[in-house]
Design a protein around this nucleic acid. Structure first.
Length: 273
DNA sequence: TCCTATGTTGTATG
DNA sequence: ACATACAACATAGG
């Protein structure tokens, strides 16, 4: 489920464990989410460590810990397609899809991911690891300019705009539903070759990317609700999944097709080739 | 049974 | 080297 705003929503759940020590670390015996991380190293370093702070960038999360000997520890989590962070009672027994459980005196911080497309990354030492520092500048940062978008689209000129919006090197945090939402608001057909967008359309695309990111973070990312909130009915989001959905701007039927390997939803009444 | 799923990466080809 | 397209990863739910 997780794109930019959902990642932020899940990150904040683990705020419950800030400033508390980790008394036990449970890792799934054959979890595929520890792709480049050794279970033993993770358990050895995190046991006895204290959670200091966390941040989200794009679709990644960083949890900073201090080891018992004060060594800075960096725990990275990517939720993949089906990952979630939850908070459970301290006595929590790991379920089938619970890959990492950080037990604290009053709770357990759990990373669960049935489909195992997620990732756990780990680093110890004073300097931030490359997997964190090399994330592209956020779409809400000053570095995300119309000119930067124009450059990027020029290099991907023959590719349909939809899959281009999913490329994390320029649109960090944008995923399938946000990409469709942006194109729908910008009134751009998802099959338009990236190189065919006019300067005015690129400006609009840039503006709507920021709009969707800003409001998704406000509605979803800032929420403390027990379940993930949905964007309002005035957005494409609530109408895009089921057959027979209609465009909230025009009332016309929506269309769904595979573009670049992902199901894409658009409103033919607003978005034409 | 078959199809779908809010993601990324490796590989083949141009 | 770069751009492009697509299979593969693994599982649950309709």
């Amino acid at each position: 489920m997780p794109e930019l705003a959902e990642v932020e929503y899940y990150r904040r759940r683990w705020d419950a464990g800030l400033h508390a020590p980790v008394t036990r670390v449970l890792v799934h015996p054959k979890a595929g989410v520890f792709k480049t991380t050794s279970h033993a190293v993770l358990v050895r370093h995190l046991t006895g460590a204290t959670l200091l702070s966390s941040e989200a960038a794009a679709k990644q999360m960083l949890f900073r810990f201090a080891a018992a000997d004060h060594t800075p520890l960096w725990l990275g989590i990517h939720l993949g397609m089906t990952g979630e962070l939850t908070v459970q009672p301290a006595a929590h027994t790991p379920r089938k899809s619970d890959h990492l459980v950080l037990v604290q005196p009053d709770r357990a911080l759990v990373f669960t991911d049935p489909r195992m497309f997620g990732r756990v990354l780990f680093h110890h030492g004073p300097d931030a690891p490359a997997w964190w520092t090399s994330i592209a500048p956020a779409v809400l940062s000053p570095a995300f300019t119309p000119a930067a978008v124009a450059d990027f689209l020029r290099r991907r000129a023959r590719t349909p705009i939809k899959p281009v919006l999913l490329l994390q090197e320029r649109f960090p945090g944008i995923g399938n539903w946000m990409a469709d939402e942006i194109l729908w608001r910008a009134a751009i057909h998802p099959r338009r070759p990236a190189g065919s967008l006019t300067p005015a359309e690129i400006k609009t695309l840039h503006r709507e990317t920021r709009f969707v990111a800003t409001h998704a973070l406000r509605i979803i990312g800032s929420s403390t609700a027990a379940t993930l909130p949905d964007p309002p009915k005035t957005w494409l989001f609530p109408h895009r999944w089921a057959d027979g959905g209609t465009c909230p701007k025009t009332g016309a039927p929506l269309v769904r097709e595979d573009i670049g390997g992902r199901t894409t939803c658009w409103s033919p009444a607003r978005q034409t080739l």
